[in-house]
Design a protein around this nucleic acid. Sequence first.
DNA 1: ACTCGTTTGAAACATACGTTTATTTCATGC
DNA 2: GCATGAAATAAACGTATGTTTCAAACGAGT
Lengths: 235, 235
Amino acid sequence: MDPITSSVSAGEGAHSEPKYSETAIRILDAAEGLFVELGMEATSLRLITQQAAVNLAAVNYHFRSKDALFEAVFLRRFGPWATECLRELDALEGRVAAGAEPLTAEAVVWSYVRPALALSKDPSRGGVMFVRLFSRVLVENHRQLRETMSRQYGDLVTRYTRALGRALPGLTEQEVEWRMHLGFSVMFHAFAGNDILKVFGRSAVSARDPDMIVRHMVPFVVAGLTSPPSGRSGK
Amino acid sequence: MDPITSSVSAGEGAHSEPKYSETAIRILDAAEGLFVELGMEATSLRLITQQAAVNLAAVNYHFRSKDALFEAVFLRRFGPWATECLRELDALEGRVAAGAEPLTAEAVVWSYVRPALALSKDPSRGGVMFVRLFSRVLVENHRQLRETMSRQYGDLVTRYTRALGRALPGLTEQEVEWRMHLGFSVMFHAFAGNDILKVFGRSAVSARDPDMIVRHMVPFVVAGLTSPPSGRSGK
DNA sequence: ACTCGTTTGAAACATACGTTTATTTCATGC
DNA sequence: GCATGAAATAAACGTATGTTTCAAACGAGT
């Protein structure tokens, strides 16, 4: 029988995670690394199955198609990360509501950075691979994945935007959205190591240590987020 | 005869631009749009030649291979842009040397943003396409292109790094490189419109007007660049 | 021991790809 | 008006792709 309908649809309802068989996991692991390194299009199923030491047909058996495999690879990491982000946000807003601390942009940033950092350091959850995969999704156009994301995780963005807006009073809603966009862009691509300097071969920086990335990135982003409002806000 | 050896190698020496035949230009234009939209791997020569209304073999005739075509597509835009950036930097440093203005981080940023903005608004030079293509190059691994870039344009990065370092005294060399990396990441991906919010379907922001992008982006980046040095500088 | 649903396995499928080959068309110089 | 080299064309090449097929192996339940 189709293992897809049993596992995936069982895990469809509200953010729960599907269980995978051992060979399915081997496929996911191999595919993850290759998708990150070569991109979705340039990675062949034969390369994946060879590296995973499983049969070629196993991919279509366990995941129905290459596209569905890509989505599974991505969502396996994204789901837990999104959950952790929401938990961090909940905790932060709880402390703020209790008057234990003010709601600052830096605190909001950390509620995103902390899960990303934890994830980066945990190889069993994909380590830094996931962030690099995510940065690919941002650039490539995976239509179906985007639909899934906006359907299933749209509220995450809403939550962050609202929190940031509260942390940055005096900014128009549009300015908040822009800074959110800019700030998250930096964070994603910094974590992913999409370094311009790397392209030019002058990459003394790319030590790729997550702690160091965070140490330089967070002050940069917080400074950008909290900079004084521009004279006239955009149309 | 091979049109490649005549045109490209004629334009090899020191940043000059090769001349292309009309059909070659048609191919470059079609390929540019498709590479941006679909990525290098997902774009087939058949799609390109069909859209350019030229024969399939014309690509290999004029550009030798698909890889070489990609490089040509990229360098056609990158060359003039790099030249303009260097001219802006020269002009800035000239004014600074003459004591006409101080060397600020914002001025350095503008020496990059101005050419990018001009390019974004000029459809005859690819418009916003090029920046989006560039952001793909940052994420995908085009080995040969990277070699060409670092060989031919490595000095551009050196110039920017040095200028930024002078504009930001009190920062260690490493901090300057980090901020440079972060700042340019924002600028590239902001111009390219690689919007995280877009992935989640909540893209009120992405009006994609270059002027508005710049208006929000520059203050953000300048704030990040000029933020006070972090306590202990990273190892 | 046998059955039945699940999972693997090897092979084939049709298609699409980048590239190459010959041939034809075309413009230009003599 | 013909020869010459560049450019366009149609067709084929070999290979690699995602997917499907169908038979074999497996593993628990009775």
